[in-house]
Amino acid sequence: MKKMMIAVAASIFLAACQSNEVVEVEAVESQASESSFSETIDENDEISIEVPYEYKINPVIFTVEPISDADTEVVLLTFDDAPQPPDSKTLDIAHTVRDKGANAIFFVMGQFLESEEAKDIVKEIHEMGFEIGNHSYSHPDMSSLSYDDQFEEIQATNDIVEEITGERPRFFRAPYGAYNSDTEDIADSENMTLMNWTYGYDWVDGYMDESSLADIMVHAPELGSGGNLLMHDRPWTSAAIGDIIDGLRAQGYEMVDPKLIESPEEE
Rank of each mutant, 00 (worst) to 15 (best):
M1K: 14
T90S: 06
E222T: 05
R98L: 14
W236R: 04
S30L: 12
V204L: 10
E127C: 02
E29N: 14
M217K: 08
N20M: 10
D205G: 12
G242S: 09
A118L: 00
D246A: 10
T96I: 14
Y201L: 06
A16V: 05
P52N: 12
D246V: 15
D205N: 14
S189T: 08
T96S: 11
M109I: 08
Q31N: 14
I216S: 03
A102K: 06
F172K: 03
G101R: 02
M208F: 02
S11T: 14
L14Q: 15
P59T: 00
V75G: 08
S146E: 13
I244A: 07
E262N: 07
A102V: 07
D149H: 09
R234M: 06
F172N: 04
D69Q: 13
R234Y: 01
I125V: 13
H219K: 06
D209W: 01
V8C: 07
A82I: 08
F37L: 15
I241G: 01
A239S: 15
T183G: 04
G247V: 03
K123C: 03
N20T: 11
K100Q: 15
N20P: 06
M192W: 01
E266K: 11
L77M: 07
E190Q: 14
E46Y: 15
L145P: 07
E116C: 05
W197F: 07
N134T: 07
L260K: 11
L145Q: 06
I245W: 07
S136R: 05
D120Y: 03
T183S: 10
L223P: 10
E210F: 04
M195V: 09
G166H: 04
E21Q: 08
K2L: 13
I105N: 11
F112L: 12
I57Y: 00
E39S: 14
Y147F: 15
Y201M: 09
P221K: 10
E114T: 11
Y207K: 02
A15E: 13
N228Y: 03
D159G: 01
G227D: 08
A187W: 01
E184Q: 11
T72D: 14
N134F: 02
A239V: 10
F172M: 00
Q18S: 14
L76G: 02
S189C: 03
M255Q: 08
A70K: 01
G110V: 06
M217H: 10
D243F: 03
D42C: 09
Y147R: 15
V25R: 15
I49E: 04
L194C: 02
L76H: 02
L91E: 15
H126V: 07
I57T: 01
D69V: 04
A82V: 09
L194Y: 06
R168I: 02
M5G: 09
P258V: 00
D69C: 01
V8I: 09
M255V: 15
V22N: 11
I160F: 07
T193A: 04
W203N: 05
D215F: 08
T237I: 02
V8T: 08
L223S: 14
C17I: 03
Q150F: 03
V218T: 14
E39T: 12
E46M: 12
S263I: 01
P258W: 06
I105W: 10
E65P: 00
W203S: 10
E65W: 00
E124N: 12
S238L: 05
P85Q: 05
A9P: 14
A9T: 08
T165N: 02
P66W: 06
E43T: 13
A9L: 13
V74E: 01
S138F: 02
E163M: 13
E153Y: 05
E254D: 12
H135M: 05
P175W: 01
